[in-house]
Design a protein around this nucleic acid. Structure first.
Length: 155
DNA sequence: GCCAACGTTGGC
DNA sequence: GCCAACGTTGGC
């Protein structure tokens, strides 16, 4: 099983929203690298829910991948801000369903993760903490996952 | 709100 | 195929 991390601005969609909805469609991803990761996801994979561009930036909870990716309906919808005219024929963008698992008592902050990475080779190589990293969906290694999950649960 | 860093676009 | 210009992301 592979692990993942998804970024979202909590004003738009937060771990709390997901905890109410239980299952949501993750759509609107318009970056090829992120899209390719979505296409690699398998049912049952676990993922961190990361809050970006907000007061408490960091990992807020865990969710589970439901099913596999499918064409993003927003790309076909002229009313949507995520509409992409080039998506008419080709299957250009992908969406996937996610299921709520846990909301951490406190957000494991980006600052905490960066501090942990000073003494942790595995975390040091994590894309998330690299300056200028804009990838909204990324893989998390088994070692990184265990380390971050443990830190979040005992936070 | 600022601005550095990034991905994409398009002229050449 | 290069690269400047642009729009967007995201931490601060």
């Amino acid at each position: 099983m592979t692990h993942w991390l998804f970024k979202s601005e909590p004003d738009e969609f937060s771990i709390k929203h997901l905890s109410v909805k239980k299952i949501a469609q993750w759509d609107g991803v318009r970056n090829y690298q992120a899209r390719n990761f979505i296409r690699q996801m398998q049912a049952g994979d676990l993922a961190f829910f990361y809050h970006s561009s907000c007061k408490h930036v960091g990992i807020a909870g865990v969710m589970r991948i439901v099913g596999t990716s499918y064409p993003d309906p927003l790309a076909q919808d002229p009313e949507s801000p995520y509409y992409d005219i080039k998506s008419q024929q080709e299957n250009k963008w992908s969406a996937i369903k996610v299921e709520f698992v846990t909301e951490f008592r406190r957000v494991l902050s980006l600052d905490q993760i960066k501090k942990m990475a000073i003494n942790d080779q595995n975390l040091a190589s994590f894309d998330l903490i690299k300056k200028g990293s804009r990838l909204s969906v990324m893989p998390v290694t088994e070692e990184q996952w265990q380390c971050l999950l443990h830190a979040a649960e005992s936070n």
